[in-house]
């Protein structure tokens, strides 16, 4: 109990004294997961919208694959990316300069994109298929092009899509297995909140670990609070 209290105090102290190491870690976490989320959004929203709106042969199969992807264990994703990017791995040994190397930020982003994209696709798909189908016909009748129709539907589904993005962000920013494996927890370059918590726990620095954990919780809270605010405005 005393330890928890000490940890909470330490966490507050670190946060409000602007501890450089802590902020570096927060910044890295935010940057890596933020970039991964943007890429996931760019890939996932159009694909999710397509799956939600288009009717084609094999659509159910693709949907089943997406739902499976939504439940991918991050550790397995980490292992797969590790094996691919390893210098003796399938991609790594090709030695192409655009393939990210293990233990770098781009490698972590790759893993996080793989984890988050199915989530974004799945939630977008669900949100888009809930939009009144009459609306698509109405918008088209008003002179919308196919792209404008899709944008209108996405706009109607925006709350669902924001929830999709927040869900994706939450899953990758709080994920530890994949980033530990692929990033290697290198101080100042691939050490993020979750891996730092693991390290400090291992080191026996429980105060610091609790402090970092609080930061993570606080971030999650702020993100979710922002969303509920938006939802309030949306309704």
């Amino acid at each position: 109990m005393q330890q928890l209290l000490d940890g909470i105090l330490e966490g507050l102290r670190l946060l409000f004294t602007g501890d450089a190491v802590l902020w570096e870690i927060i910044y890295l976490s935010g940057r890596i997961s933020g970039i991964a989320l943007v890429i996931s959004a760019v890939l996932g929203i159009p694909f999710g919208a397509f799956l939600g709106l288009a009717r084609f042969r094999g659509r159910r199969l693709v949907q089943a694959i997406v739902y499976t992807g939504m439940g991918l264990p991050p550790v397995v994703v980490g292992l797969a990316v590790y094996l691919l990017l390893s210098r003796s791995g399938i991609l790594g040994h090709l030695n192409w300069s655009w393939i990210p190397q293990l233990f770098t930020v781009p490698a972590m982003i790759v893993a996080q994109v793989i984890i988050a994209t199915p989530l974004v696709v799945g939630y977008t798909m669900a949100a888009v298929s809930e939009v009144n189908p009459d609306l698509r016909i109405q918008v088209r009748s008003l002179g919308a092009t196919p792209l404008q129709i899709t944008l209108a539907v996405l706009c109607e589904a925006r709350l669902g899509i924001i929830v999709a993005l927040v869900g994706g962000l939450g899953s990758i920013i709080s994920e530890v297995g994949a980033v530990m494996m692929v990033g290697g927890n290198i101080e100042g370059s691939t050490r993020v909140l979750t891996t730092a918590i693991m390290l400090e726990t291992r080191r026996g620095n429980l105060d610091l670990a609790i402090g970092l954990g609080m930061v993570l919780l606080l971030l999650a809270f702020l993100i979710n609070f922002g969303v509920t605010q938006l939802q309030g405005k949306g309704n």
């Binding site: 016909i137 918008v139 009748s141 002179g143």
Partner: peptide
């Protein structure tokens, strides 16, 4: 050519935003 359907499918947002929609398109 445009249609007004039996059941109006309106967009989220205000009346004004709905009316201006076709012009924006």
């Amino acid at each position: 050519v445009t249609t007004v359907f039996q059941r109006p499918a309106l967009l989220q947002g205000s009346v004004e935003e709905n009316v201006v929609y076709g012009l924006r398109l």
